[in-house]
Design a protein around this nucleic acid. Structure first.
Length: 478
RNA sequence: UCCCCGGUAGCUCAGUUGGUUAGAGCGGGUGACUGUUAAUCACUAGGUCCGCGGUUCGAGUCCGUGCCGGGGAGCCA
């Protein structure tokens, strides 16, 4: 609560609906008009949103107000207003409280009401992406913004309460072979006049950092260093991938959460993933009930139900080898035939999580051949045609892979063998190998795509709609 | 990057086998009516049918091409 110019207390709609002001007291709210409904009996109903919560507040303005005819009757969707008056119980249905206005000040008009893009009606998400600067004024994008915030806060809170330290890994990196995707180049060289070496190559020794640099595709390698000193750490920050991916679940710029735990194996990691996800889902359900009710009503009917179910049930867990057998015995015709050694295709993941288990599934112990060099090599086990690594993916219905992680290879000799097999430059990664020389311990970590998490929570089908300003191939507008 | 689908009013869309002056709902304006709930009713304004080229007596409609958007696949979180 603050004081307005005429010294009436200014409230957020959220606080008023939470009962922070008494009935029959004078209050002020500030926000944007959603709709205006007139009664020629001489009063208008103004539906005001200030984004503090999903609900709007109704302001009743009568023709006794000095600016009623000249101004209030000309208000359109999107106008910014400051409304003062008496907080009362509503005489009409549909809302509990309303404000009987003693003053309605128009702070900002809408210049062209006939072409203002955000109308009180259903818009397509495709259209709203083209007005990404105005879409937060809609119910849907306001709700997404609040859920996104609450989820982010819950993530930090979970780790903080469980003794993890947040580590800020660099966004600019010189590692060009992390194996997680194509990189965006970071350079200050004059592109019209590039310095060249004797051989005719671009001379990056003349570049800002004196070498080739890129935007990070993962903080994992860097955060392992802090894991092997602070025991329990995590990253939460932006990540960049220059893949030419045009799907509903890929962004060129997205936010990733990467916990890393020392003295831990794959079982510990799977347990963390489950406990962590359930904590975040519980927080969103309890802190954003109105927003979640909206998603269940308009976006995804199962939005609330599936989170509640997920919180109650233990995660399904299946070995890669067993998953392949399930797929083979499903009787379903897949475009890519499931065979031991292949990576699980989208159609396979969808079958497992949406049909066979109908719940989030953790697939563990993938073939060595298809996974990254830093994943820990398992001992050969009966029934497995080849060697596997201690990797795990969490698959969610409708989204697919939401988490990918592994126990890390802590044995020096095996790690260096694997790096050579993967053509990794040992010289460049000597600092990473050092951890295995100086007090090495079993450790494990995973990466969680924050936008994929928000997609799953809200039921929003396209990942471009759960980040304020999506960056995708061919589009970096706003 | 590959495969499909689409682009008509501010928005959502319709538009017949190619045929006169391209329509509706919502939104805007004006008016009527009502403690209203995406209010209702009447009237009204509003169009480079994505761009370029072609076929045709005639193209929103058919063909080619470019741009943009969407869905799916791959890559992955």
């Amino acid at each position: 609560m603050t004081q307005s110019a005429d010294s009436l207390p200014v409230y957020s709609i959220r606080d008023l609906l939470a009962g922070q002001a008494n009935l029959q007291t004078q209050v002020t709210i500030q926000g944007w008009l959603r709709t205006r409904r007139d009664s020629k009996a001489g009063l208008s109903f103004l539906q005001i949103s200030d984004g503090s919560c999903f609900a709007t507040l109704q302001v009743v303005a009568t023709n006794e107000l000095a600016n009623y005819t000249d101004a209030i009757l000309h208000l359109t969707s999107g106008c910014a207003v400051r409304c003062s008056g008496t907080l009362v119980e509503s005489q009409g249905r549909g809302q509990s409280l309303e404000i009987q206005a003693s003053a309605v000040e128009i702070v900002g008009w809408v210049e062209n009401p006939d072409s203002y893009p955000i109308q009180p009606k259903q818009h397509s998400f495709e259209f709203l992406r083209e007005v990404a600067h105005l879409r937060p004024r809609t119910n849907t994008f306001g709700a997404i913004a609040r859920v996104r915030h609450v989820a982010a806060q819950a993530i930090h809170r979970y780790f903080h309460e469980h003794g993890y330290y947040w580590v800020n890994t660099p966004l600019i990196t010189a590692s060009d072979a992390e194996g997680a995707g194509q990189l965006f180049r970071v350079s200050t060289l004059d592109q019209m006049n590039l310095p060249r070496t004797d051989k005719g190559d671009i001379d990056y020794s003349k570049d800002f950092f004196g070498r080739e640099t890129f935007l990070t595709v993962s903080g994992q390698l860097n955060v392992e260093a802090y894991c092997l000193a602070l025991s329990k750490v995590y990253t939460f920050g932006p990540t960049f991938r220059a893949e030419n991916s045009n799907t509903t679940r890929h962004l060129a710029e997205f936010w990733m959460i990467e916990p890393e735990i020392a003295f831990a194996d794959l079982d510990d990691l799977v347990a963390l993933a489950e406990d962590f996800l359930k904590y975040v889902f519980r927080a969103v359900l309890s802190e954003c009930p109105d927003d979640m009710a909206f998603f269940a009503e308009r976006i995804e009917p199962q939005a609330i139900k599936r989170l509640e179910t997920l919180i109650e049930q233990p995660f399904q867990r299946v070995d890669y080898t067993a998953a392949i057998e399930i797929l083979q015995q499903s009787g379903k015709k897949f475009e890519f035939k499931p065979e031991w050694g292949i990576d699980l295709q989208t159609e396979h993941e969808r079958y497992l999580t949406e049909q066979h288990f109908n719940a989030p599934v953790v697939v563990v112990n993938y073939p060595d051949e298809i996974k990254a060099f830093y994943m820990r090599l398992n001992d050969q086990r009966d029934g497995e045609p080849g060697r596997t690594v201690a990797a795990m993916d969490v698959l969610a219905p409708g989204i697919g892979e939401i988490i990918g992680g592994s126990q890390r290879e802590e044995r020096l000799d095996i790690l260096t063998q694997r790096m050579q097999a993967h053509d990794i430059d040992l010289e460049q990664y000597s600092w990473y190998v050092d951890f295995r020389r100086y007090g090495t311990v079993p450790h494990a970590g995973f990466g969680l795509g924050f936008e994929r998490l928000v997609s799953y929570i809200t039921g929003m089908a396209n990942i471009r709609d759960v980040i304020p300003y999506p960056r995708v191939p061919g589009n970096a507008g706003f």
